[in-house]
Design a protein around this nucleic acid. Structure first.
Lengths: 208, 208
DNA sequence: TAGATTGTTAATCGATTAACAATC
DNA sequence: TAGATTGTTAATCGATTAACAATC
């Protein structure tokens, strides 16, 4: 198979999103030209992108929306039954528990962990909040795929190291701490809100 | 001046972050080679990047950390005295108010807006929460630079259009709704958490 | 001065776009 | 069949890297 560039990987979720919207709108087929119009990409790029993973279209017809969506889902791993826990249930953790639809991404959010006794034992949006001291046992018992790291900066590194010890090898990292360097087989996706806001500031400052 | 690529713009906040860390650590000078080691970039790329904006270094010496940080700040607009309001103070909005350090990005968060009477009139982390019906008047009176959009999906488009009418032309968009298409002179920075999680899922699914 | 490191030009590499034969 | 649109190869474009003269 061809080399999958970082740029291409970041475009895949966008294809996924559009396929969902088309499906909801009851549209059953779509051409690369139409997809290009929707996303602001060239038709060429879209066909090139898909061809890196297989042949999903039909000459003279285009792409079947449902089928393409399924295939992209397989590529992105949304069909794998992944599970997640949120570590740190402060305001960021709670915002994710209450607002982010993990199920839509094929991920089952099975628990939150915190140190605050007022939170421990509660249930937020069907997710039980457990004592962080039980985390090791829980993770070993439940085959957890992803740890959502939303703890305070000061304990980010220590918590990440603990999680790695418990067998976690994929982090969705909301702390502004680089938690990865030496562990090359640990996957970290950083959510750098800072970078995002600074890009906006740049655009504003250089708009005219 | 040279053309500034999107890739370069997205690297600038990372340089900014490292300069801050170096400064905190009391380091006063740094070479492109050392920066490259820290960030995982080539020294060549770093010099090339900086040269798009000016000459900030000194042959045989490298870059003065404080000076370079200041210059990058100017490029990113952190010295412009921008102000922001948060529109929608549900859990995402509150998480930002309580956790995100706007001041570190040179931005003054001056108000939140909501429809919920229980929130209106309160103060969160020094930020007053006001009735959304007063938003138009407030924005016209206070020269607001950025609107942080954190309202429910259903009212995202309507709220964005209102804000544009009140004179807002820069959005930090936490809704999963594209709020921009036709308004070409409105800047939108989308925080697509979905995309981020799907990339993580992809990496996990294709790790071995 | 000798050593270090920049800013910049040229070379390479990779990603996007264009073109088109294959085929539904 | 004629029209449409894919998958793929080739051409172009842009971004990264290498090299080096300038100079602190």
């Amino acid at each position: 198979m061809v080399k999958i560039s970082q740029n291409l990987i970041r475009r895949m979720p966008k294809y996924m999103r559009v396929m969902g919207e088309l499906q909801e709108a009851g549209i059953t087929r779509v051409s690369s030209a139409e997809l290009g119009r929707i996303l602001g990409f060239t038709a060429s790029q879209i066909r090139q992108d898909f061809s890196c993973f297989g042949e999903f279209g039909l000459q003279g017809y285009g792409y079947n929306v449902e089928h393409l969506r399924e295939e992209i889902g397989k590529i992105l791993g949304t069909d794998r039954g992944y599970t997640a826990v949120i570590v740190g249930c402060g305001s960021i953790g709670q915002a994710l528990i209450n607002n982010f639809n993990f199920v839509d991404h094929g991920i089952d959010l099975i628990a939150g962990f915190d140190v605050n006794p007022e939170r421990i034992g509660t249930v937020m949006n069907h997710v039980p909040i457990l004592d962080i001291s039980e985390m090791g046992k829980f993770i070993k018992a439940h085959n957890v795929t992803v740890a959502v790291l939303a703890v305070p900066k000061a304990v980010a590194l220590k918590t990440a190291n603990d999680l790695i010890e418990y067998g976690i090898d994929a982090f969705w990292n909301f702390t502004n701490v680089d938690v990865v360097p030496p562990y090359s087989n640990v996957i970290v996706e950083n959510v750098h809100l800072s970078d995002s806001l600074l890009v906006l500031s740049y655009q504003k400052a250089n708009n005219e």
